[in-house]
Amino acid sequence: MSRSSVAGMIELEGLTKRYGEKVAVNNLSFTVRPGIVTGFLGPNGAGKSTTMRMILGLDHPTAGDVRIDGKHYHQLKDPLTYIGALLEAKAWHGGRSAYNHLLCLAQSNGIPRRRVGEVLETVGLTAVAKKKTKGFSMGMGQRLGIAAALLGDPRILMFDEPVNGLDPEGIHWIRTLMKSLAAQGRTVFVSSHLMSEMALTAEHLVVIGQGRLLADTSMADFIARNSRSYVRVRSPHRERLLDVLHQAGVVAVESGEGVLEVDGGKAEHVGELAAQHGLTLHELSPQQASLEEAFMRLTAESVEYHAHSGTSAAPPPPQQQQWGDGWKRG
């Protein structure tokens, strides 16, 4: 799609950030559009927060460009009424009350004072508005950050891991909030490392790993490609079974340890074929690959901080190549 400057677009072009030798963000290009929730996914250290800091003009890009409706962040003179952001780390003075924290933000952008009370109400912090923020729990802190993002009633909202530290009720609340914000026509850009979380909220998906773009796809597309169902079959007569399936026009692939995976096949059909030819089966089970697995496959190669335990979380690499390639842009 052609890049057109309409209200609420975030456009990244070849965005790159280097910290010394370390390339945190590597040549990222994508567009975040209004009216939907765009999920920004990547494992720890992928560069999500760095990208968001560059969008907000906090970090200078080493190369490339990021614009909001065609403008650099520092060109926005009243940025809070344009874009609201929840940053990754706690970003306020613990000795100041929630009310005063929001008040000083409102004043710097000429936002009417009454908005402070309104957003405190929205996030449910009215009762503790005059309390010092250093006593806040993690979830309350997260809500204060969200209140700050909503303060200017902006058309673009950016949340860096908003569900961090929220209880199930809080998670449900933020999910509903993000969807309703997008439904009002706003741009909602939200980072996460949880695919399952994104599957519930995001309509569009941008996946990065080690600073590079791995996927830029609609959620529906991602699900269609990845919620692959297959039948897992084990048999002592593996070779003969393969022949039988092949003759019947059923595609099966070997996936090590004598296991066959029959893509999109019905367990009944495989069982009947085996019975007709008198082949013993040790296992015949329908399987559904989870989105989380698909995400891990996609990013396996670029995961930076592996847990070095015996059981590797990431499935074997051969498949990830073909899986990832399909969504890579350009």
């Binding site: 400057s5 309409v6 209004p34 409706d69 065609g70 710097s108 000429g110 009417p112 009633d153 058309r155």
Partner: peptide
């Protein structure tokens, strides 16, 4: 009115795209 005053960068005239959210909060030049 704000974005319309600004698309000097590049704008495809006439592209009608779902226009984003418009806030009732008045814009002040800070």
């Amino acid at each position: 009115q704000m974005p319309q005053a600004a698309p000097t960068w590049q704008a495809a005239p006439g592209t009608s795209f779902p226009s984003g959210y418009t806030s009732p909060i008045p814009v002040v030049r800070t």
